[in-house]
C-alpha cells in the first residue's frame, strides 16, 4: 500500500465493486474522466474485474480516504522499451472533489511510477473544459505538450483533448527544489 497525507493507494478488490458502482452513478464526474456516461450494471463490472484478474493487471490502484474508496488511478499505454507510459486518475466521490485528494494521491503515485517502477516519462490526456484537472496537473509539474482540436464529444459540444507530460528528470529537479512534492 502507498501512503499519502490524505489518501492511500492499494490494489482493487472484488469487495470494492459495489462502492465503485455507486460512485459511477455520477454522470458529471464520469464524463470528466471518459467523456461519456452510460449505465453499467454491477454484474458487468464484476465480469470485467474477473477478466482483469485473469490478465494479472498490476498497475491499477484504488484511491482510499477516510476508509472509503473515492477513486482510482492506473497506467495505460505502457511502453517498457522506451520507458514511457500514460496514466488516468479520477476522484468520483463528489465530497472529495476539488479538495486536494487527487493531487495527494498523484504525488504518491509519481514516486511509485518514477522511482519504484523505473518509468522515465509519464503523460496524460484531459479535456480543455476540465480546468480543475489542468491546474492540478500543472502544479505537479506536468507541461502542456499539445492539443487535439475537438477530439471528444462531451456534454453537447466537441472539446479539445490536451496532452500533458512529465519527465523523471523534471520531476526530480522539482523535488530537489522542494517544489510541489511534499506539500501542494
Amino acid at each position: 500500500m502507498l501512503q499519502g497525507e490524505k489518501t492511500s493507494l492499494r490494489a482493487w478488490e472484488q469487495t470494492d465493486l459495489p462502492r465503485w458502482h455507486e460512485l459511477s452513478r455520477s454522470v458529471y464526474l464520469m464524463q470528466m474522466g471518459g467523456g461519456d456516461w452510460y449505465p453499467e450494471p454491477l454484474a458487468r463490472l464484476e465480469y470485467w474485474f474477473k477478466k482483469s484478474l485473469e490478465k494479472g493487471a498490476d498497475d491499477e490502484f484504488a484511491i482510499m480516504a477516510d476508509g472509503k474508496l473515492i477513486g482510482g488511478v492506473g497506467l495505460h499505454h505502457s511502453d517498457r522499451r522506451s520507458g514511457t507510459t500514460s496514466f488516468g486518475i479520477g476522484i468520483y466521490d463528489e465530497a472529495y472533489v476539488g479538495r486536494g485528494y487527487g493531487s495527494d494521491a498523484l504525488r504518491v503515485f509519481l514516486t511509485w511510477v518514477f522511482e519504484t517502477q523505473n518509468w522515465r516519462r509519464l503523460w496524460l490526456t484531459t479535456w480543455s473544459t476540465n480546468q480543475r484537472a489542468y491546474r492540478a496537473y500543472q502544479k505537479l509539474g506536468f507541461v502542456e505538450e499539445g492539443r487535439c482540436p475537438e477530439e471528444v464529444y462531451c456534454d453537447g459540444a466537441y472539446v479539445d483533448e490536451v496532452i500533458m507530460g512529465l519527465l523523471r528528470e523534471e520531476w526530480q529537479a522539482r523535488r530537489s527544489r522542494g517544489v510541489s512534492h511534499v506539500k501542494g
Binding site: 458502482h21 452513478r25 454522470v27 449505465p39 450494471p41 454491477l42 454484474a43
Partner: peptide, 15 residues
C-alpha cells in the same frame, strides 16, 4: 444516473 422531474434512470440491477 439521470434525474428527471419524476423518474430516475439508472443501470439495471440483478434485483
Amino acid at each position: 444516473m439521470l434525474k428527471g422531474e419524476k423518474v430516475v434512470l439508472r443501470a439495471l440491477q440483478e434485483e
